[in-house]
Every structure is written in C-alpha cells, then in structure tokens.
C-alpha cells in the first residue's frame, strides 16, 4: 500500500518527494509525518493568498498615491476607512459564523482599497462603510468566503452604492482644488455635452472621476508589475482593452462626430483600473487561457455598448460584473481535454 502513495509535505518542498520503496524495511517504524494524498500537480509554488494580496496592494500603491495627489488627504482617509470597514466586517462575520479567522490573508484589505479607488472623492465616509460591508458580506462571505464568490466583491459593493445613492455616486470634484468644485467626468461631459478632454490630462489623471481611476499612468505601472509577477493573467487586460479599442473605433469610423475615438475610450473612465485590477481577479474570472480571452472580449463589447448606447456614461463595473456571472459557464465550455479524450457524442 504505502509504497505507491506519494507524499507531498504541505507547502514545504518544491519537488514531489516520492516515498522510496520500503519493501525491505520492516513496517514497524511508523513515519511521524502524515501522508498527504493528493493528485497532480505535485509541484507547489511558494505562493499563498497573503503573498499575492500583498503584491496586489503594492501594485495599487502608485494609483493610491496619484489619487491622494489629485484629490487630497481626504482620499487617504477614504482608503483607510474603506480598508478598516472591510477588514472589520470580515472579522465580525467570521466570529458570528464561528469560522476560522481569515482576515490575515489580506483579501479584505484589497477589497476595501479597490472599492475606495472606484468611488467619487467626495462620497461621505458612512457610505464607504456601507459599501465595504456589502462587498464583504453579500459579495464574499454569503457565498462561503474567498474563493467561492461569483462576483468581484469590490465591484458588487460599488454596484450597491451606485443603486442606493445615485446622486453622491455621480457627483465629481475637480482634481487639485481645495473647496471641491463639482465637475463632470470626461465620459459624462462627452455623453451629455459632447466635449472632449485633452489626452494628456486623461493619461496623467488630472480629470474628474473616481479616486483611483483617473490616472492611466499610475494604473499601468501597477498593472505591469502584477503581470510581471504573473499574479494577473495578461490575456484579460490585453483582450479587454483591444476589444474596446477595435469595437470603439468601429463606431468612431462610422460617425466621428457622434462617437468618441478609441484613445478616449481607453484612457477615460475606469477602464484601466477595471482591466488590470478588477477583471484579473483570480476568483471571479475564467481559469483557462481560452476562457480568459472570451472574458476580455465579452467585457469589452458590453462596455462599448453601455458607453455608446446605454443611459449611463460609464459601464466598466457592469461589464465586469456581467462577465463574472458568465465565468462558470465559460470555465465549463473551455475545459481542456484529457490527453486522448474522445469527443462526446
């Protein structure tokens, strides 16, 4: 029996240790280590949830710093409030549900931070707390905790806030102003007033918008770090952004006066933040390479349709949430075949 069991010491070795044949030895010496039965793969990376989440937080730092630079210290307080609310909610729910404490894996920190980065800089603090609570409670813990949630928790929290408090959620302030003059987002002013915003401002982030979505530069720096560390699947941002660019230019070529050009599409709104940090969430996006392509393309098409033909100026949140809902289906239909597997008839 034992000879054939492969043991994989939990998270310790990089290589599978195959139990040496012990037919000659007497079985009287019992091993102290417990055998762990597991199917392939036997190579385990040294990565764990906490480490990945830490990397995501590092990757979000440039975005957070730009957000604070443009929207002032209030943005920093918002982030702290959001993170604290998310972590506290998770701790509290674990206590109530009598589950092992999971706050140390850092996923609540990421959820709280991401949530605040997608909120308008003038949003009242108590609404941030509501959003973080909904994100963790309904978005994650009700489904069974990290790994079981269908929707991106931060986006779910944001969707709840958007539906609950539409006016504060669409009140934007000018960046770098002391007394918070209201303004419109580039997408909003295009949709309702047909005015374009200079590209440099769009790229740097010197425009009205959510705390962490305005600066394409900062998001790309962090996003590339994540891609380099392979914590995000490059296929999703690439397919998402390319689809938006192609699909967007299609309409632009048809009628440049009515529809914005692809560069405007790419750098305005929350597309960059969504593409690099929301659509790449490991839990709520497809696991197969082909699935990732489908996810990105689908989200891109939905986004352009919402932006051009919907009632709302921006659709990143809904495009990703909708594709999240399709993820189990995509996973199912893009499952790789076993070697030699015959086609089911």
């Amino acid at each position: 029996m034992e000879e054939k069991i492969q043991k994989v010491p939990a998270g310790e070795s990089q290589m599978p240790k195959v139990a040496p044949a012990k037919t000659s030895e007497s079985p009287s010496k019992p091993e102290k280590r417990a055998f762990i039965l597991s199917s392939s793969p036997h190579i385990q990376a040294e990565e764990d949830v906490a480490k990945i989440m830490r990397a995501v937080v590092y990757a979000l730092l440039p975005t957070a710093v730009f957000g604070i630079y443009f929207f002032g210290w209030r943005a920093l307080v918002m982030m702290l409030v959001g993170i604290a609310a998310a972590v506290l909610t998770e701790a509290l729910l674990n206590l109530v549900q009598k589950k092992p404490q999971t706050i140390s894996d850092g996923s609540a920190v990421v959820t709280g931070l991401l949530l605040v980065l997608t909120l308008p800089p003038s949003l009242p603090y108590w609404m941030i707390i509501v959003g973080a609570f909904v994100a963790i409670f309904i978005g994650k813990q009700l489904f069974g905790g990290l790994g079981y949630n269908i929707f991106n928790p931060a986006l779910l929290g944001r969707a709840f806030l958007q539906a609950s408090f539409p006016i504060p959620m669409t009140t934007w302030t000018m960046p770098r102003t002391i007394d918070a003059i209201t303004t419109a987002t580039p997408l909003g002013s295009f949709k309702f007033e047909k005015t374009l915003t200079p590209y440099l401002n769009l790229f740097m982030g010197n425009v009205g918008g959510c705390v962490g979505e305005t600066s394409a530069l900062a998001i790309i720096i962090g996003g590339l770090f994540l891609l380099y560390k392979k914590y995000a699947d490059w296929r999703i941002p690439v397919s998402y952004l390319t689809t938006v660019a192609i699909f967007g230019s299609l309409f632009w070529l048809i009628n440049p006066a009515k529809y914005p050009d692809p560069i405007f599409h790419l750098f305005s709104g929350g597309l960059m933040l969504g593409a690099f940090f929301m659509a790449t969430d490991m839990v709520t996006t497809p696991v197969t390479p082909k699935g990732s392509w489908i996810f990105g393309i689908g989200a891109g098409i939905i986004l352009v349709i919402i932006r051009l033909f919907g009632g709302l100026p921006e659709g990143v949140m809904y495009s990703i949430l909708l594709m999240n809902a399709f993820t189990p289906l995509i996973n199912r239909y893009t499952r790789p075949k076993f070697f030699g597997e015959a086609k089911h008839v």
Binding site: F160, A163, S164, F165, P166, P168
Partner: peptide, 12 residues
C-alpha cells in the same frame, strides 16, 4: 436621512 434607493429598486 439619505434614502437607500436600491431598496425600492428590483435588486433591493
């Protein structure tokens, strides 16, 4: 009091 609009909408 700020009304939680979501509650009178279908998701609520």
């Amino acid at each position: 009091y700020t009304s939680w609009m979501v509650m009178v909408l279908p998701p609520g």
